[in-house]
Design a protein around this nucleic acid. Structure first.
Length: 585
DNA sequence: GCCGTTTTCGGCCCGACTGTTTTCAGTCG
């Protein structure tokens, strides 16, 4: 039972209670528990094992007992009891935009509608009008919501959302009377995927920016338009929300619209306990006098905390860490000295020459760039002979270019199905850098995949495990491998785990980074570049690391080359000629 | 259902917009 499965059960309990008129605070308690479990950095079963379940915020006797029940039996009696009260299909109605528990309960009880098809029918034949407050406009908007639900494409990758955000704020900044235009929401928190885009504007008056916003050429439909808040859907399907506020509210608004929701609720609750009210307009006392709010720091100071970086604002312990002075000094892109995984045109899918890689590294101020092409079992991968030639070419290139970044002669060696490596260990041991990755038999069991990676970790020649979870955002789920076990092995052997900065990989993810830090394992933030321009993608990896609470000392490639070489010597043992085959499972 | 620097009982973040009304309920973020 994974965290997301537990979260799903609590989320359904919340939906059913909501629909059946249950206590709103109970509903919220279940929703918060679902959110908490879903965003926990490690398996909830570990918290249970260590007796820490009840110390999690929002988990008390009732929900704690249900977590244990789920972990032990895979079921939850209360959930099953509630599920019997609701016909299948009704909960899905809640996924429609603009349709909430009250509407669903009404159509279910008054019209007998229990699924999306039924609701569509009721809209079309006019039965929906029998329900109070259901006019023609509501009917139309529900039909549209059903249409969108059916064509829903899911969340957008962060790098694309950042592209939209930057274009929109650039346009809004040119509008007369606009002071600031800033992307907020999950883009500012650097979440790997973005549901919709939030843009904050401060301006003399809201009229001009709002007009400019809804009249942007890529707007497909205006969903809402008011004096402070407007909302549109772009032709790409992305929803964009604009908020316009007075300048003196900038800090409070920045904080509020950056979220996350869980973080905001926690912070506002804290404010209430201090006799304060925090809204997007500022910090207010009991009498409603505005105390501050022009700067984001004001909001935190009002509740006795230092400023918390947006990447940490997920309601996963950042307020407590701030309170106790334990906030990490998050790693910054400028602290990275090199890139530890790029491809050249020597193997299958790379496209750039050594010179292009070197130039790209030079432009970005890199001190070293590890050229890690694919090994022989990949199509057109390097055989032993070609690898040795390639390594010789790289070393010759370095001699011919004494300035600028050092190219490291490396490899991205396949971890084969039996856990062995795709090239002889002596050859791998002669290289400057070795990344080992799984590219085959991805459907192996989680236990087997874990054993394959562990075997590579224990080979004595591997520096980094590449894209450890195998996920491709939007198309391939991470494999169900045992990260804590892999981390344990990596710590013992002095091997790092990669944060692959390709925008659709971001693998390890933020939670994995946090676990790695707790386990004492360093990460290498690498671009896995296949084009010279990809070397600039390192920022996406840095964002993941920051969301994972990592500091410079947690990241291998903040080391200069001399220290990186020293780390290698310390971590490595002699190559083991018989790598362990995966344990039988 | 959770939780405690007002509380072990009685609270629980706050405001905007829409559609339907003529003062507001529902939904969203």
């Amino acid at each position: 039972m994974e965290n997301s499965d537990v979260a799903q059960v609590f989320s359904e309990i919340a939906d059913i209670l909501d629909l059946t008129g249950g206590n709103q605070y109970k509903v919220r308690a279940y929703r918060q528990a679902a959110q908490l479990v879903d965003t926990l950095p490690g398996p909830v079963s570990e918290y249970w094992r260590r007796g820490q379940l009840l110390s999690l915020p929002g988990i008390g006797e009732g929900i704690g007992t249900k977590i244990v029940e789920l972990l032990e039996t895979g079921r939850c009696a209360e959930h099953e009891r509630l599920a019997r009260q609701v016909p299948p299909g009704v909960l899905e109605l809640l996924r429609l935009e603009g349709v909430g528990p009250k509407t669903v309960a009404a159509v279910w009880h008054k019209l007998g509608v229990t699924d999306i098809e039924g609701l569509e029918q009721a809209c079309r034949d006019g039965r929906l009008r029998q329900i109070p407050r259901m006019g023609p406009t509501r009917c139309k908007s529900i039909l549209k919501a059903i249409e969108r639900f059916r064509s829903r494409t899911g969340r957008m990758l962060l790098h694309r959302a950042v592209g939209y955000a930057e274009a929109i704020v650039a346009r809004l900044r040119k509008v007369p009377g606009v002071y600031e235009a800033i992307p907020v929401g999950s883009v500012r928190r650097r979440r790997a995927t973005v549901g919709d885009l939030d843009i904050l504007v401060t301006a003399r008056s809201s009229t001009a920016p709002r007009r400019a916003f809804v009249e942007m050429p890529e707007v497909a439909v205006v969903l809402a338009e008011g004096p402070t808040k407007s909302s549109v859907r772009l032709t790409s399907g992305l929803q964009v929300d604009l908020r316009v506020l007075p300048r003196e509210s900038l800090g409070a608004a920045l904080h509020y619209f950056t979220g996350s929701k869980a973080h905001n609720i926690a912070l506002r609750t804290r404010a209430v306990h201090r006799g304060l009210k925090v809204s997007e307009y500022g910090v207010f006392d009991r009498e409603g006098h505005r105390l501050s709010g022009a700067r984001e720091e004001d909001v935190f100071r009002a509740v006795g905390l230092p400023w918390i970086p947006p990447e940490l604002r997920e309601g996963t312990g950042e307020l407590e860490a701030a309170e106790e002075g334990r906030l990490p000094k998050l790693v910054e892109e400028a602290e990275l000295r090199g890139d530890l995984h790029v491809h050249s045109d020597a193997s299958s899918d790379g496209h750039c020459t050594l010179e292009e890689l070197w130039l790209a590294g030079l432009r970005l101020g890199r001190e070293y760039v590890a050229v890690c092409d694919h090994s022989r079992s990949r199509p057109l991968g390097l055989t032993t002979e070609r690898l040795l030639e390639h390594a010789a070419r790289i070393r010759a290139f370095n001699r011919a270019h004494p300035e600028g970044p050092r190219l490291l002669a490396g490899i991205e060696v396949d971890i084969l199905p039996d856990g062995s490596l795709d090239l002889p260990l002596e050859v791998l041991a002669s290289l400057d850098w070795v990344v080992a990755s799984i590219h085959s038999r991805l459907r192996d069991s989680g236990a087997r995949l874990t054993a394959r990676m562990e075997s590579a970790v224990r080979s004595g020649v591997v520096d980094v495990i590449g894209h450890p979870s195998g996920r491709i955002l939007g198309s391939r789920d991470p494999y169900p491998f045992d990260l804590p076990r892999l981390l344990e092995a990596a710590r013992e052997e002095g091997v790092a785990l990669e944060v692959n900065a390709q925008p659709d990989r971001l693998d390890l993810d933020d939670k994995g980074c946090r676990l790695a830090k707790q386990a004492g394992v360093r990460v290498a933030i690498s671009t896995d570049a296949h084009l010279a321009d990809h070397l600039a993608n390192i920022r996406y990896g840095v964002w993941v690391a920051r969301r994972g609470w990592l500091e410079a000392s947690d990241v291998l490639n903040t080391l200069d080359l001399a220290h990186l070489r020293a780390w290698r010597r310390r971590g490595h043992r002699a190559p083991r000629h018989e790598p362990r085959s995966p344990a039988a499972h």
